[in-house]
Structure formats: C-alpha cells, structure tokens
Design a binder for these strands. Structure first.
Lengths: 297, 297
DNA sequence: GATCTTTACGCCATGCGTAACGATA
DNA sequence: TATCGTTACGCATGGCGTAAAGATC
C-alpha cells in the first residue's frame, strides 16, 4: 500500500531534505509531502527522517531505504518510459487556443485526445475573434482552433473540425432583426465592423467586402479588441457583424439578434499551428481530430 | 500514474496469463484486473496483452515491459521488506476473540494497534461466555479477551485491558429486580446457572460457590451454550447470573434487569493466548494494550 | 450453453488542497 | 516575528466490487 507516488515523494525529500522545495519540485503542497512521509513511516514501522521546523535529516533507516528504493524506482520509470517510447506515446503540455464556445464544440476531440494520451496536460487560452491568429504568433498557444481560410506562410492548417453557418449579429432594434433571413446583398446597406488584426481573406469569411452586385460593404471606424466589446457595440446598434451559428447558441444576450445570411457559404474551422513548432503532441491532436470526424461524418 | 498496484497486477497476469487466476491470487475480482490492465495500456500507449475470452498472451511490448518491471518491482518490495524487518514491523492476520460488547470496550486498543501496524489484518470471532476458553483451545482465535482469573498451564495471561463491576442479571419479575443492590449473601437464596465449560475459578468470578457465611450457592441443571440462550433463560425467570456491568449497557432487553452486587470485587479482563503460539503479532497487540492503559489510567 | 473477459454503475477510501496551528530560531 | 513542518477538514478522483453483457469454443 506504499505506492509509487509515495516513493517518489520519499526519494525527492531524501534528496532535497526540505519539505518546501520537495513540494515545489513535485507540484504539490508541503502538507501532502508530510502526509505521504507519515504514511510511509507507518508502513515501514519507524521514522525515515529526523525533522523539526529547522532541519530535515535522513535516519539510518531512511538512508538505507533510499538506497534500496531509488534503484528500483529508476528501473520502473525507465521501463515504462522505454515502453512508451516504443509505442510512440507522447506526453507534455499542449496549449490550445479557442474562441469561447468553440472549445465546447470540439469537446469530443479533446475527450478522445485526453483518454488516448493520459500523460498530456491540456491548457486553454482564449482566442479573441478580432485577432484570431495573434495567440499563435505570440507563442501563447501551440495550436488554435480558427476559421478558414488561413493561408499564412508560417502556419500549417490541420484537419477541419467543425463547420458552421454564418449569421448576422444585429441589435434587436435594427431593421434586419425582424427578418427571417437576409442575403449578402443586404449587407451593402449597413455598416459592419472592421473586426481587427486579421487577414482580409479571413475577414471576408464572415464579412465580405463587396456584395454580389459589386457594391462595397462599409466598415466602421471602431476597432474593438475583445469579443465582449464587439457584442457591446452591436447590441448598442453601432454596427453589425457576421458570426458563426455557434455564437447564437452561447450568447443569447438581451438586445442581440442573430439573422441567418442565406447565401453565405458555411465557415469551416480547423486546427492551425506554427509550422516551425509542429510536434508529436500536435500531430497526436490532429490525429484525434481526424478520428472523430471520420466516425461522425 | 501507473502505481505499484497496477504493476503488481500486470506482473501477476503476465505470469498467469489468465484473468481469473490472477484475480484469485491477488484477492481481487477479474473486473479489477481488466480495469487495471486497461489503465496500464493507456499509460503505455499500446496493448500489453493479446486476449480474447479463450486465451491471454503477452504482446512483444508486454513481454519487454515484464522484463523491465519485474526487476524493479522486486527491488522495491525487497527494500521495503528489509526496512520493515529492521524496525521489527509485523504483518499478517490476527484473530481476536471477544464476547459481544467487549470488542467495543477495547476499541482504543484496536485502533492504536491498527494504526501502528497497518499491514496487519484483524479478524474477529465471537467468544461464548459459557465457554470462554474454547475459541482459544480450538485455535479459532489467536488471542481472546476474557475475564480473570485464568490460570491454565497452556495459556498466557497478558495485560489487563478492562475492569468491570459485577451485576446480577435477573428477570424483571424476580424479587431482586426491585432492589437497589444486593450482596453475595443474597445469592444463597436463589438458583444460578452453571455457565458451561469453564474452570471453577473463572465461574466463581461472577458466580461464587458459597456465600460469605458459608451457605452454598445453587446451580441450575440447565446448561446454556450461547449467550443468547443465557439471556433467554434469565428473562424467563429460570435463574439468575452474574455478569459484567458492560452487559447491562448493551443488552437492555425488556424483561431483563441488572442489579449491582455491592460486595463482589470488580472483574478484570485480560488478553490471553496460547503460550505455545505466542507470536510477534500477539506481542505487538499486547504492547498496544499496555500503551493505551498507561496513557488512560 | 459454458467459460472467460469487458462494461456500466455505484460506493467509499484516500489523495490532495486550504487553512489554521505548532515549533524553532 | 518569520520560517517551516504538522494537523484538521472537506472535496473529488479513482480503486474496487456487483451485476450484466459480450465474446469464443
């Protein structure tokens, strides 16, 4: 009933001889270290450390146990690492950037990924729609879920994970709010936001620059930098903006209405990463994404 | 996060190549074996066994992992065993015989014992008051908590763990039931049970053979063999019987009354075991008992 | 149909963090 | 008083058993 975790803690403390540093190294609290050592001492039947609030020292018993356990612990760790290497299992931390609701949209992919790669820690960062590629460029995310088209020389576009219709977000007091649906031509009559720092091709996915008949679609001078600012401006009637259908599901704000744009092609969402920083972890995530899309077409 | 327990299960299955036998050997269910192996395979990233309901076989990956882990597991087990040997820690199973409520009375001792010797499994057997030493003699208990005096050539009397006053159990319709207390002399007027197979000296602890003035205290011909039979007979008014005060706390049956016997010496309860089978385990229990009595005098 | 493994579900033991406390200089 | 280890308590993950289902002969 002494488990590997306890042995790990014991060995760490035996080397550090300091509860605080041991806890830090293992990313746990000193309380846990204390509890674990206490448990080990129970099991063994005697004290492994002599300690007070000023000093920590191995007892003879502890010293011997350290000798005996460290070799075995090494062997086991190495054995598992070897087997993991052989299967190509990956581990580490992967930071994924998503725009609010989209994280939930790809939950099946993340679930599969986490269960097939239990030693990977997934972290999340919020992608701001006005600047969807910034998080990748700054290195704050390893992979991001963004809408296409993305054709940047430094970025790789991975598997498409999700497809969503385009709706127009308008204030409830806007004339279009009453409409069943609108068409792109209608956009020529109203002012849209310039969403922010993003390539024109991406901007056009939700917000074309011209109507089918060739009329320009105007941009507002306002430059919101976060998604909530965008929602606020739209609600206040300062403009309109194309958005994914998913937004309508998650942001049913009072004062905000979503109107389908019937002649805009659906927007595809894909995993994107820095080509230069592609890693086994990223490939594994891409693999999981392809698995899921293939089983639920 | 693969723990020693999983490794133990993996190694066992790798040797047995059979879920049922593996489960049996480890005293777990086949479901647990399956879950644990599944977990290990997740962690490692690939299958360790090829298996169907007819056959279980190691994969190449599993075979290598077995090689690598078994040595490490051995080392760790040995290391811990060595340390335990050095501290004189004990393990195994100890069967303790007690009469109903008394098990609760010595709970502090058992708690201390279990926490200081976590690798010991304590089992319980019920001692029948009419034959308090039989469980020891038959080998069904390693230690028993019985009342003194015990002076048998084959038995060792360990530490005294509890002391209790003597009460007389009588039927509620018995004349003594009304009394505040009685004295031993009063016992001469009524018929008591012959409790069963036990030494006369022990019998006398609760049920003297003569009153202080020298009158004999009569025995009933009935020979109850279990405690519940005794209670039934007393309740029905077929006799009376001395009992420990503890009995009154736990057996407040309707129809049963307990009357203090004011001039009988309190009865002492001690741990008793077969001298020939004294073991480190038994000594450890005795030690715990002495610890507790010394801190709560 | 019999034997063997896996899955689904629920319980509870225990790993772990938080916060308060205790000891040492 | 500042630093460091321990204790008390509560939450939640995960180990484990039960029962039922799925696979193979």
């Amino acid at each position: 009933m002494v488990e590997l975790r306890d042995i790990e803690i014991f060995l760490a403390l035996a080397r550090e001889l300091h509860f605080g540093r041991t806890a830090e190294r293992l990313h746990i609290t000193t309380a846990r270290v204390s509890q674990s050592i206490r448990k080990a001492e129970r099991r063994v039947g005697g004290p492994l450390f002599e300690r007070n609030s000023r000093t920590v020292r191995l007892t003879a018993l502890g010293e011997q146990l350290q000798q005996d356990l460290s070799a075995g612990y090494r062997q086991i760790s190495d054995g598992i690492a070897k087997a993991r290497a052989r299967t190509g299992a990956v581990s580490g931390t992967l930071t994924l950037g998503t725009m609010g609701p989209m994280a939930h949209t790809i939950k099946p992919v993340l679930d599969l990924f986490e269960s097939t790669h239990p030693d990977v820690t997934l972290r999340h960062r919020e992608v701001q729609p006005p600047a969807p590629l910034d998080l990748l460029r700054s290195g704050d995310a390893d992979v991001a879920l963004v809408y296409l088209p993305v054709s940047e020389p430094d970025l790789t576009v991975g598997p498409v994970v999700h497809v969503s219709d385009v709706l127009l977000m308008v204030s409830t007091s806007h004339p279009y709010a009453e409409r069943e649906s609108i068409c792109v031509e209608d956009l020529g009559d109203h002012c849209a936001f310039l969403p922010g720092r993003l390539p024109a091709s991406m901007e056009a996915a939700f917000q074309p620059f011209h109507t089918p008949s060739g009329r320009p679609i105007a941009r507002s001078a306002r430059l919101p930098s976060t998604w909530h600012e965008v929602l606020g401006l739209v609600t206040a009637g300062h403009g309109v903006l194309g958005a994914a259908r998913d937004a309508a599901l998650y942001y049913s704000w009072p004062g905000l209405t979503f109107v389908p744009v019937r002649d805009m092609p659906p927007v595809r969402w894909a995993l994107v990463w820095r080509t230069a920083d592609e890693s086994p972890l990223i490939r594994a995530l891409g693999h999981a994404a392809r698995e899921v899309s293939s089983e639920t077409p």
